[in-house]
Design a protein around this nucleic acid. Structure first.
Lengths: 111, 111
DNA sequence: GGCCATTATCGTATTTTTACGATTAATTTT
DNA sequence: AAAATTAATCGTAAAAATACGATAATGGCC
């Protein structure tokens, strides 16, 4: 890959791509589902549910956090994760806008 | 990575992840925008617009096609690409369902 | 204080992704 | 028929993602 070319696209394209990337692994989608199923912060039970090693889950959590989709507070031996609804909402809206804008121009396929 | 673990998740999680993956690069989002801006099939002008080599663009197109988001017919020296609106619609709907389902359970963050 | 449980981080291996140049393939044009 | 145009494919290199075990870190419990 030598040189990264991602920076040459618009910020919006990059942001949306980063959001999509955060959701581009089934484990991370599964994690979000688990997080959503609770009213409280999840403290570790994610590892039990997923077919992945503890360190791997931790890595996925880190990526979700980096993408801004979840918040996490470290509380000593236990960590507390939950969905960042605000960010999620924002991305969902932007996603729908992309879809809508795409559709606005053309409704018919020609191939 | 030794062993792929993706298969151990539900089909729906895998499908959504695959869709997200297709959109996880700004170049592919940019390509979709270009495709949507035309009423006809695009025959090559994509390379001129993007800051990428012809072979790289071709690769991105291949991935979008593989994900089912675009259709393409090879017509000798010229190729003809356009968005597969049906598939797009389907994925958009599933995406919104995911969001809605997540939100259904919990509206408040706790971290 | 020492031990336990829990989670992050580190080191590492493997795979996948991204990117490009060169080549090939298929028409169109000359 | 030869040359030109266009786009896919191949080969390859470098980077990023995925996964795990081992280790470190942090706070609670005895």
């Amino acid at each position: 890959m030598a040189i990264h070319k991602k920076e040459e696209f618009t910020q919006k394209e990059q942001d949306l791509a980063a959001f999509a990337k955060a959701l581009s692994h089934p484990a991370r989608i599964a994690i979000l589902k688990v997080l959503a199923q609770r009213n409280e912060c999840i403290c570790g039970e994610i590892v039990d549910v997923l077919p992945l090693a503890q360190s791997t889950v931790s890595q996925h959590l880190k990526e979700l956090k980096l993408a801004g989709l979840i918040d996490g507070t470290v509380d000593g031996p236990k960590s507390c994760y939950c969905i960042n609804w605000k960010a999620f909402q924002k991305f969902n809206a932007e996603f729908n806008t992309l879809f809508t804008n795409l559709k606005l121009k053309n409704e018919k396929s020609c191939c």
